[in-house]
Design a protein around this nucleic acid. Structure first.
Length: 453
RNA sequence: GUGAUUGUAGCUCAGUUGGCAGAGCAUCGGAUUGUGGUUCCGAGUGUCGCGGGUUCGAGCCCCGUCUUUCACCCCA
């Protein structure tokens, strides 16, 4: 009993109560995915480092958890690399596997690896943990779950429409009010083009992504800091100031981006998507947000992000189209589009708003309390009968003071308690107590079964 | 990676200029041998994160280290 046991930074244990809530989240998302024809796959927790490296930018590479090689991993090191403390060189000797950073890149690897067996368009979903060597803070963990659904091998904007519908349906089922924000990387590229800085699209998008967070002035300051000309920043202002409803924004963009082929393509895609979405009844707000950029640089078309309206937290769902993710694994011309629910943040939101349905977090329905060995024996057939009917039931296993058994039943939150004593055994009944109302009466087995069904 | 912040009983936290280690909740026992969520009485528990230093004396001061939380970067 030296030091207290603990778990690594940024990781969590989940109690039975927490798991009940988490499973409610996972099951809801799974049901909706299945409804739209996505089928589940899983991939290993670890991937070859060559699969992961270079897919998430320099920042992303730093956040990869690397797995130490087994065996004599220092044998291949040269004295030169060792004395020079060359970390990059060292890594190639020390580690050739890493924990996955997201589900999209392993999925791209999966598609390329099994291309001869997959029928395209291929729709898959995947719910697994991912790991990032980040500094943990509010709503950020080193191990967390992603719930991805992707379609590869189809360029149709029908897919985008369905992903937005899925987001709408999932959050409607959760009862979380959300705003679904949409944008298109081609529009962003067009913006960079018309202001004369097509090469700086990444810097531009990263900066304007922060608009609602840090304000216009600071965004402009950051743009200048990144080396954008004052002329370009000046030209960007009317675009950032665009307001009105979605159609008004699109109309304005048509004029602003008229000279940019890629920009106009983006506007056209956006317009098509909005038209498609009009055919469906949406409960969430759908908004064209030109400042939406999303960090991952493999996105090339539509980008999607969902924000909760009633809780201050980062985005709880995100996604978008990536035209050539499989290209890096040697398979060109396959376009994909996907969405990812952040289960851990949704969990935080549901907790804050207390939106769990009552039956989603409940354990067993009934527990048998008793006064000794004879009563326990008497209760066992009753237990089996209940379970046969699909009614979850338990028995207090030890001989304990009745008060203590009652306390246990109350703390565990059973809806009913069945009391077995001498008089019950004589009459061939149990006393059924409703824990919520406190009422109780004697019931035969048939009465018990109909009551609890 | 940068800048702050935290650590004392199972949990949440007090602890004065450096002078005997505390409270509430939870747990256990009893009031009450067939009735919980409300009451009353009683009881137990500490490497004060870890290592070093200053001091007659350190939970408190100094150094190091780990940990917690938060912001930045980036992201779900």
């Amino acid at each position: 009993m030296a030091t207290k046991p603990s778990i690594p930074k940024g990781t969590r244990d989940f109690s039975p109560e927490e798991m009940a809530k988490r499973n409610y989240i996972f099951n809801t998302i799974k049901e909706v995915y299945a409804l739209y024809g996505f089928r589940q796959i899983e991939t290993p927790a670890m991937e070859n480092l060559s699969t992961l490296m270079g897919k998430y930018g320099d920042e992303g590479d730093k956040l990869l958890f690397k797995i130490l090689n087994s065996g004599d991993f220092l044998s291949g090191m040269t004295d030169e690399d060792w004395t020079n403390r060359n970390s990059n060189k060292a890594v190639s000797h020390l580690s050739e596997k890493g924990l996955r950073y997201d589900l999209t890149v392993p999925f791209a690897r999966f598609v390329v690896q099994y291309r001869d067996q997959i029928k395209f368009p291929f729709k898959r979903f995947q719910i697994q943990p991912v790991w990032r060597a980040d500094r943990p803070q509010k709503g950020r963990y080193r191990e967390f779950y992603q719930c991805d659904a992707d379609i590869v091998g189809s360029d149709s904007l029908i897919n985008e429409m369905e992903l937005v519908q899925i987001a709408d349906e999932v959050f409607a089922r959760f009862g979380i009010r959300v705003c679904i924000k949409l944008n298109n990387r081609k529009i962003l590229a067009g913006m960079a083009e018309v202001i004369g800085e097509p090469e700086r699209i990444v810097d531009i998008t990263v900066a304007i992504d922060k608009l609602d967070k840090i304000g216009l002035e600071k965004v402009n300051a950051e743009l200048a800091d990144k080396g954008l000309s004052t002329d370009a920043i000046e030209k960007l202002q009317p675009i950032l100031a665009l307001s009105g409803n979605n159609q008004e924004k699109l109309d304005a963009l048509k004029t602003i981006l008229a000279t940019s082929e890629v920009g106009m393509k983006g506007v056209e895609e956006m317009e098509t998507l909005f038209t498609l979405l009009k055919g469906n009844e949406m409960r969430a707000q759908i908004e064209l947000d030109l400042t939406l950029a999303r960090g991952l640089n493999y996105y090339t078309g539509t980008i999607i992000e969902v924000k909760a309206l009633d809780v201050v937290i980062g985005s709880i769902t995100g996604g978008g189209r990536y035209d050539n993710l499989t290209g890096v694994f040697g398979m060109d011309g396959v376009s994909g589009v996907g969405i990812s629910f952040g289960a851990d943040r949704i969990y935080d939101v549901l907790n804050q708003l207390e939106l769990y349905p009552a039956d989603s977090t409940q354990g067993s329905k009934i527990i048998f309390l008793h006064f000794g060995d004879a009563e326990k024996m008497y209760a066992l057939p009753w237990l089996n009968a209940l379970r046969k009917q699909g009614i979850s039931a338990e028995i207090y296993p030890d001989n304990a003071k009745f008060k203590k058994q009652m306390q246990y039943a109350n703390d565990r939150g059973f809806a009913y308690v069945a009391i077995v004593g001498e008089s019950e055994m004589q009459e061939n009944v149990v006393t059924l107590k409703n824990m919520k109302e406190g009422s109780q009466e004697k019931n035969s087995l048939e009465e018990l079964l109909t009551k609890l069904r």
